[in-house]
Simulated assay, not measured.
Amino acid sequence: MVDLPEGYRLLDGPPPVDEYLALRRAAGLSPRSRAQAVAALPGSWYACHVLHAESGLAVAMGRVIGDGGWYFHVADMAVLPEHQRRGLGDAVLTVLLDRIRAKAPPGAYVNLLADPPGRRLYARHGFTETAPDSIGMALKLP
């Protein structure tokens, strides 16, 4: 388990849907609809969030989606701006990766899409850029 500053507690599972959506929005992640969140969160391979004792709200989160065999994608890494620089993102990522290491078969492939604010955090945890060997590609459906 990881150490968190006083007043914070790490919980297994994603935050409640409304807190998930608010946390995404406040942390600058792309907005998602309630219907998307309701469908997505139960499909997580693993998720965790950090609860702020004083407010009772989720202030950090992350989740892993994947097939449980060889492919694992880290998603929804977010920390509320007013709770950043306290090690919460580092703690969440540590727990996600520890879970993968403990439960995934040997040879698991872990990836993520790294926006500029998170790149240093991910590099500290051993993630490296895949370009030019491979690049991220996306298809947004209407």
Rank of each mutant, 00 (worst) to 15 (best):
I100S: 04
H83E: 08
E54T: 11
G28R: 12
H125T: 00
L141A: 11
V50Q: 02
A35C: 02
T94C: 08
G69N: 13
P5N: 07
R120D: 14
A60C: 10
K140G: 11
D18I: 05
A108G: 12
L4A: 05
E19C: 05
Y71K: 10
Y109F: 15
R85A: 11
A104L: 08
P5M: 11
M1F: 09
E129V: 11
R9Y: 06
P81F: 05
R9K: 13
G69R: 14
L93V: 08
S55G: 12
A78N: 06
L10K: 03
A39W: 00
W70V: 12
L96F: 05
S134E: 13
Y71P: 00
R124N: 12
A58W: 04
R25A: 12
R124M: 04
D98I: 03
G126H: 03
T130Y: 02
R85G: 03
K140N: 13
M137V: 09
A22Q: 14
P42Q: 11
R99P: 00
Y8K: 06
E129C: 05
D12P: 09
G87E: 01
A108T: 11
E54W: 07
P16H: 01
D133N: 13
A91D: 04
G7S: 11
L93Q: 02
L23N: 03
R124Q: 12
Y8W: 09
V38W: 00
S33F: 01
Q84N: 07
G43D: 14
D12K: 07
A138P: 10
L51T: 02
A39R: 15
A53P: 02
D133M: 07
P5D: 09
G66A: 08
T128A: 15
S33M: 07
V38L: 15
I100A: 10
M1P: 01
H125D: 01
L21P: 06
A91Q: 05
F127I: 01
M77C: 06
D76F: 06
G118K: 05
A78H: 10
P31L: 14
H52I: 07
L88M: 05
L51H: 10
